[in-house]
Amino acid sequence: MNIYDIVFYLFAAITVLSAFFVVTTRNIVYSAYYLLFTFFGVAGIYVLLGADFIAMVQLIVYVGGILILILFGVMLTNKITSVEIKTGSVQVVPAAVGVALLAGILMASMVDTKWRSVETAMPSATTQGIGMLLIQQYAIVFELLGILLLIALIGAASMARK
C-alpha cells in the first residue's frame, strides 16, 4: 500500500462515513453539515484522479452553492414550527428491498465489467481540454444545458412571485 492508496482510502472513508451520518442523524441541521464532508471527500477523490477542474467545480457548485441553499432552507425553517423537525425511519421494508436491489445491480455491474487499466501519464492540465470540447465537439449540448438552466431559473422566479 503506497501513499496514493492511503490517501484514497482516507477520502473514501470520509465520504462514506459522513454520508452514513447524513442519513442516520436525527437533527436535520446536522445532516446538512455532514453533507459538507461528503462533498469534500468526493472533491478529494477527484483531485487524486487528476481531475483538478472537476474537483474545484465540485466545491464551487455543491459546497458553495447548493449546500448553502440547503442549509438556509433547513436553518430557517426548523424553528418556525414549535416542533423541531426530525428525520425518522418509515417504510423500512420496501426501502431495504430497493436499496438491496440497487446495491446488487451496482455490485454486479462493477464485478462483471472488464475494466481497462492502461498506464497513462497524469494529464498536467485538464481545463484547456475540457474548454475545447465544450465549445467545439459538444457545443450544442452545452448550449442546450444552458437553455435548460435558464428555463429552470425563469420557472423558479415566476413561482416565487405568486
Binding site: 483538478d52 477542474f53 474545484m56 466545491l59 464551487i60 459546497v63 458553495g64 452553492g65 448553502i68 481545463t127
Partner: peptide, 14 residues
Amino acid sequence: VNIGILYVLALTSL
C-alpha cells in the same frame, strides 16, 4: 497549480 483562480473562487465560497 493550474486551476489557481478556480481554487480561489472555491475557497471564497467556503
